[in-house]
Design a binder for these strands. Sequence first.
RNA 1: CUGGGUAUGGCGCAGUUGGUAGCGCGCAGCGUUCGGGACGCUGAGGCCGUCAGUUCGAGUCUGAUUACCCAGACCA
Length: 409
Amino acid sequence: MKLSHSFVKTLRNSPKDESSRNADLLIRAGYIHKEMAGVYDYLPLGLKVLENIKNIIRTELNKIGGEELLMSSLQNPELWKKTDRWDDQKVDIWFKTELNAGGEVGLAPTHEEPLTNLLKDYVSSYKDLPLAIYQFQTKFRNELRAKSGIMRTREFLMKDLYSFHTSEEDLDAYYSKVETAYKNIYDLLGIGDETYETFASGGVFSKYSHEYQTFLPVGEDTVFYNQDRSVVLNDEVLNDEVLNDLNVKREELSSTRAAEVGNIFKLKFKYSEPLGLKFIDNENSQKTVYMGCYGIGVSRVMGVIVEKFADDKGLVWPENIAPYKYYLIGIGEEGTKIAENLHNQNPNLFIYDDRNLRPGEKFADSELLGIPYRIVISDKTLAENKVEITSRLTGKKELLTLEEFTAKL
RNA sequence: CUGGGUAUGGCGCAGUUGGUAGCGCGCAGCGUUCGGGACGCUGAGGCCGUCAGUUCGAGUCUGAUUACCCAGACCA
């Protein structure tokens, strides 16, 4: 990608109305644009990051049998009335509007109801189960207060997976598979070593749910953890009964701020019962389907990654999710010519800074954008017939011949 | 929702006791520069969030309203 062709520009000043580090840097670096409080646009670079995160998640979910679909945002109130989640007193984050033809619709804050209902058309026998169905979908939640940049917004991208089973054992077994998949996902996203499965409140049908919490000073949750971090719990469930269940003592726990990057639930019959999702078992008797649901806030994860890695020079993306791997700078006539050639061979790997700027500005932007490796080709490096590679993360420089470098691509 | 704060060119800001707007960055042109955000000259761009009001005159005063930010509450 040639930078001169992008409509996006970097900013030297921080926008006044963003105090969160993630939105500040993402806006300055041209990854996102703010539409209004809690509503952001994803510009070409931001979209690439989002897509990279999605692909990591997609790959892992497909490994555990997930099937991807895409459901609608507009919701039929009748469905939600059956589960008692349409009433604003019960669920206070709905965006609701009216049809010109008459009647109300809502913008989906989650998708248990429509998917459970949808499956009534496709599930009739135990032979149709289990199922694991997921999507990447825009959710709408009318939060009283949007904050923390892209970490808590009114419109956001979420991966939601739902599983359907004939028995509690099967649900439990699948739940474990998801736990493993989630661990892999957070590892691949680069935040695995600071992300912990955390006990949280479970609701009606199970004692606990599990959240995935990334330790982060600007996180919105408070979690408690023991010394080896084998037990982590949300402060909302910090009580004697839970401490007893988990066999930890209050005194041995420390607390920290953390950001929720995922949440998994055993729903059992919570939605299948009221919506009537049933199957016939092998003895011809009618049973209610067991369900689980598993979410990851994709856009929030992007914000958490920014918060986790950014430094005083700007963004720092892990290689896996960076929009491009290399930021290419040619200096001098010969260096520019070679850089241009290199870029043209594989435009998808490089941001080629072909702008008519002095090198210092290009260096600064390469750092602000957080691209993993900066490649400089100049008279200086060409004197040794080499190109210079600088790691954004470590700042370490390396000189390779052009042949050695292209061999690595 | 409660409390506090802010609204002035694309971004960041200044506008003194009311006299119809200025700076930095960015942008356009020319020239000198060219491995760490260079410099000179020239230039474009704003009815000062919105609506009322006071006044001969309002970015400055009054009232209302909207948006945005922060803290808290809320948060499958």
